[in-house]
Design a protein around this nucleic acid. Sequence first.
DNA 1: CAGTGGTCTAGACCACTTC
DNA 2: AAGTGGTCTAGACCACTGC
Lengths: 245, 245
Amino acid sequence: MTLISEPVASFSPLYEQIKAMILASLQASEWLPGDAIPSEMDLAARYAVSQGTVRKAIDELAAQNLLVRRQGKGTFVATHQEEGWQYRFLRLETDSAEKLHLKNRFLACEYIKADAHTAQLLKLKVGDPIIRIDRVQSSMGKPIVFEEIWLPEGRFKGLTLDSLNAWAGPMYAFYEGEYATHMVRAEEKIKAVLVNQTLAQYLQLPVGSALLSVERVAFTYGNKPVEIRHARYDTSDHHYDNKLN
Amino acid sequence: MTLISEPVASFSPLYEQIKAMILASLQASEWLPGDAIPSEMDLAARYAVSQGTVRKAIDELAAQNLLVRRQGKGTFVATHQEEGWQYRFLRLETDSAEKLHLKNRFLACEYIKADAHTAQLLKLKVGDPIIRIDRVQSSMGKPIVFEEIWLPEGRFKGLTLDSLNAWAGPMYAFYEGEYATHMVRAEEKIKAVLVNQTLAQYLQLPVGSALLSVERVAFTYGNKPVEIRHARYDTSDHHYDNKLN
DNA sequence: CAGTGGTCTAGACCACTTC
DNA sequence: AAGTGGTCTAGACCACTGC
């Protein structure tokens, strides 16, 4: 019997390796959100490649919104604290062209144990400690969004209802500032559902109304899932906006 | 009183101009969907620039899914006829991981006049001739999608219910093959709605069930809107999948 | 083997920001 | 003026495809 030789390591261009090294530095918090990373010339010297090769690596990371290039200033680690990037993942818009402004109200923050579904999505074990948060968001006094959020307790030690209410800003900026956790991407599954007794109360809508149900899993560096959200949107005067390319 | 001088024409790099020229060729149907465009070297000679500059132009067009690069073979005009690109804009998935397969049934195809709303979205005048199509799509015998489609008559001359039913494949491949119209991108606005009498009939659901309403405007080259779709999805066993970056 | 796109380099120069 | 990213070039060589 003969051993089948392992497949030859597939060709990996230099700039991919450099992307990986930059990613590793990001993941290791060597450069923090908002920081400038070293200049292209510096990185070229550090990795002993040409500037053009570093450039291609950075280009691709910038295309994935991990880095932000600013001519004349430098290349920066993307952050949700930036003006205009606070609501990067929010696709809800008003039907009129008016700008949406949502006011936050946190209702609950409890420490519980992961059930099978939550554990699977967050890549935890059933029974692992997690945090569950409820909130309602309103526009002009009318509740529009009811949201349940699940977080792994390990990464968000000490989070309380008070600390949430003390924060006036987007949640992902909160995670970044308080828990050194930067969200890189998210996946959403969208359905239409009916208002039940509980939702009727939170959203001040009659039972039997239609709602948009949006289940999100958000990931930090290294494809690590660190947040689940189940939102219900009242889409009477709003809609979820999506661009397809 | 002094005149404020006009702002200087903003800087436009060479590769942007080349992108524009390639785009013009695509828009003029000089190269058709599925065709190979000239090689990088040829284009570099034609436009009298270096290969690297052509390369950057093509890279960006490929990133927008207008072109497809194939190492060793050439660069091709993107097409909805391609295996794996047929349902490029379809975000509906089964809740189980099973592959979704939808069967088409066209119900109506009528020649009407544009109302204010349709005219605005398609950039036509009120009263301009348009075509309206109804269809139902089913999975395993169960209707999942009811869709109304509006097309400008000018671009889709001679379209009939029979020609639609004769076609077994995605609509965007049909538009490409029969009407030389390639869809480049689309925008969708999503809401949750309730089943009314009409929808109940088409989707075999009780009045009062929740449905996903998806209003799409699709664009061809040059940001020209050429199709409106209003779909209703039964999301009992399916969901709309979206990735956020 | 010829032709295509893909990678990498080295160097010149431009545009933008800051001091 | 110095430092950053952005553009453009020319040339060498690699990887993949198809004849």
